[in-house]
């Protein structure tokens, strides 16, 4: 169980990531309060996806993980996106 050759994320990087996440949260709240109509849902989901990517990359250390793990995570999110798209195709064209 020796894993001391892992990458160590610095405290300052953790702070930076938090500040970016808080800024993105503020943007999404303000954007939705401005009532952008049909684009509101899309914008909220895009901002949420950006935040999730940042959490996965830095807080969950994916940036410093091996290629296998990164491909697996990417693949699973792709699979999830495909499942959503297929569900909607089925729902709209039935």
């Amino acid at each position: 169980m020796k894993n001391h050759d892992d990458h160590i994320t610095s405290y300052s990087l953790n702070w930076t990531v938090l500040i970016v996440l808080l800024i993105l949260t503020t943007i999404s709240i303000l954007a939705i309060k401005m009532h952008l109509g049909a684009y509101t849902v899309a914008l909220a989901l895009i901002l949420a996806s950006v935040k999730v990517t940042i959490v996965l990359t830095y807080f969950m250390h994916l940036k410093f993980e091996n290629l296998l793990l990164r491909l697996m995570v990417g693949g699973v999110f792709l699979l999830f996106a495909i499942v959503i798209v297929i569900t909607f195709i089925d729902y709209y064209f039935r």
Binding site: I32, T40, A48, F59
Partner: peptide, 14 residues
Amino acid sequence: DLIWIFLFPLLYLI
């Protein structure tokens, strides 16, 4: 945290 990042806009904001 990841789950909440999606739950918050979907349930509370939109």
